[in-house]
């Protein structure tokens, strides 16, 4: 399953470690929320970056105390019709100021890339190779956005107001 990060297909430096499996001594790991919360300090102190897979049925509040020390948070789309993680993503980025990698995992198709990016995701475990290949192209699909989110894209309303301002200034 290809990982798209910063707009291109890249090698995943994080190792998914299953709940029962032993943690590697160093290197970046991605573990479940349950395992992380058993002993967060131990995980965060270990050599190597830590990332947590956070379920979409649990409020992100419990993760907030650790955000500045986490290298990655992975939010889950069990099917692409389950959109809870979009809210979680925006809360992490926009309300709690999370700046690390925000990864989308699960059933990820190209048709969600723009939505996900706008919600704050910057890494995508894409289900199909063809979709991963089409990432850059797909992200160019839209140039107009109606809603403000934390992604910094200028909204249609802002563009209209700027236009109006410059028109009235030019008169």
């Amino acid at each position: 399953m290809p990982l798209v990060k910063q707009g291109r297909i890249t090698t995943d430096l994080f190792v998914h470690v299953a709940d029962g499996a032993e943690l590697p001594g160093d290197g970046a790991i991605l573990i479940s929320a349950a395992r992380f919360l058993e002993d967060p300090e131990a995980i965060l102190k270990r050599a190597g970056k830590a990332g947590v897979i956070w379920p979409n049925s649990r409020a992100v509040d419990d993760l907030v105390p650790y955000l500045d020390r986490l290298a990655a948070v992975a939010l889950v789309f069990p099917t692409f019709r389950d959109g809870r993680a979009y809210s979680q993503a925006r809360l992490l980025r926009e309300r709690h100021g999370y700046e690390g990698e925000l990864r989308a995992i699960g059933q990820i198709l190209r048709d969600q890339f723009v939505f996900m990016s706008r919600a704050g995701f910057d890494a995508f475990e894409v289900k199909k190779d063809a979709d991963a290949d089409a990432f850059a192209e797909t992200m160019k699909r839209y140039s107009v956005f109606y809603q403000p989110t934390g992604d910094g894209r200028v909204t249609a309303l802002n563009r209209r107001m700027q236009l109006r301002h410059s028109e009235s200034a030019g008169q």
């Binding site: 979009y86 809210s87 723009v114 939505f115 919600a119 956005f145 109606y146 809603q147 249609a156 309303l157």
Partner: peptide, 12 residues
């Protein structure tokens, strides 16, 4: 406009 292609609420 606000509800069109909303990035958070398109999979309710």
């Amino acid at each position: 406009q606000h509800t069109t292609l909303h990035p958070e609420f398109s999979f309710l």
